[in-house]
């Protein structure tokens, strides 16, 4: 099983420890992982801003880097959702063929560990109070769990994995799956609302005495962390991969 590791651009630049944890975690579960070193972005920043036409180079680069793998795995629900929903052939017929099934071979880390690897234990420990931020694209897009809107009983894959960490305390939140307000360019074009949404999420975690806030997407956590650091809050931010890898 050859796994290509897709590391979102901002994780590559700002959160290398998350990429390392993902790599190590996949290896722990006997995956043959390779990181193609000529990769760039998935194209989402342009497309979500309305410029899917400017994302074509990113789509082609993604395809060139990853088409040879059985699976592509990434520590980001948002980038994976973008690849699944919007990479060719959904965009235009003139795009190179053969990538339709590449988007189906692309997995978010937690769903890969649950649905493909079938992880039953992690061997990790964490003695802290952890608040889980459920990033929207993972939750409502990839359906990593049942969102609070839908009346369905479904396993939450992220939570289930975290519950396999010894000693962990997952705190309950008043609003278990409200958006943090990052939203890509929304974070700057709608700065005021974005900040309000983020401070409200942060307050929910803090009022339940979370020591660590975790999630499947560093983009949401980067936004929340930026707010927390400006306000000198002592809570720390770790990607789910880091907790599952026993880094915390």
């Amino acid at each position: 099983m050859k796994v290509g590791l897709f590391i979102p651009c901002y994780v590559d630049q700002f959160y290398p420890q998350v990429a390392k944890a993902t790599l190590q975690l996949l290896r722990k579960f006997d995956c043959d992982v390779e990181y193609p070193t000529n990769q760039a972005c998935c194209g989402q920043p342009m497309a979500n801003a309305g410029f899917q036409n400017r994302a074509r180079a990113a789509h082609r680069s993604f395809e060139k880097n990853f088409d040879r793998f059985d699976y592509v795995v990434s520590p980001s629900g948002s980038c994976v959702l973008y690849v699944r929903d919007h990479h060719p052939p959904h965009i235009s017929a003139e795009e190179p063929a053969g990538s339709a099934d590449l988007s189906e071979r692309t997995w978010e880390l937690c769903e890969f560990l649950t649905d493909v690897v079938g992880v039953e234990s992690t061997g990790a420990t964490c003695s802290r109070r952890v608040g889980l931020h459920q990033s929207c694209h993972g939750l409502r897009g990839l359906r990593l769990g049942a969102g609070s809107e839908r009346q369905l009983q479904a396993e939450n894959k992220v939570r289930s994995l975290l519950e396999m960490v010894d000693g962990i305390t997952l705190v309950d939140l008043d609003r278990p799956d409200e958006c943090c307000g990052f939203g890509g360019t929304f974070a700057v074009t709608e700065e005021a609302v974005s900040v309000r949404m983020g401070t409200d999420r942060l307050a929910d975690h803090l009022s339940h005495r979370a020591e660590i806030i975790t999630g499947t997407d560093m983009s949401c956590l980067m936004h929340l962390e930026g707010l927390a650091r400006r306000r000198s809050e002592s809570v720390s931010f770790r990607h789910v991969a880091e907790i599952l890898n026993g880094d915390v």
């Binding site: 390392k20 962390e225 400006r230």
Partner: peptide, 26 residues
């Protein structure tokens, strides 16, 4: 810098993941 009005930018690590991977072979 609309990001920075109310938020800190993320802290810059020593090297990117790619640089680390290329340097160490992962």
């Amino acid at each position: 810098n609309a990001w920075g009005r109310e938020r800190e930018l993320p802290q810059l690590p020593e090297e990117s993941f790619r640089d680390w991977y290329v340097r160490t072979g992962g």
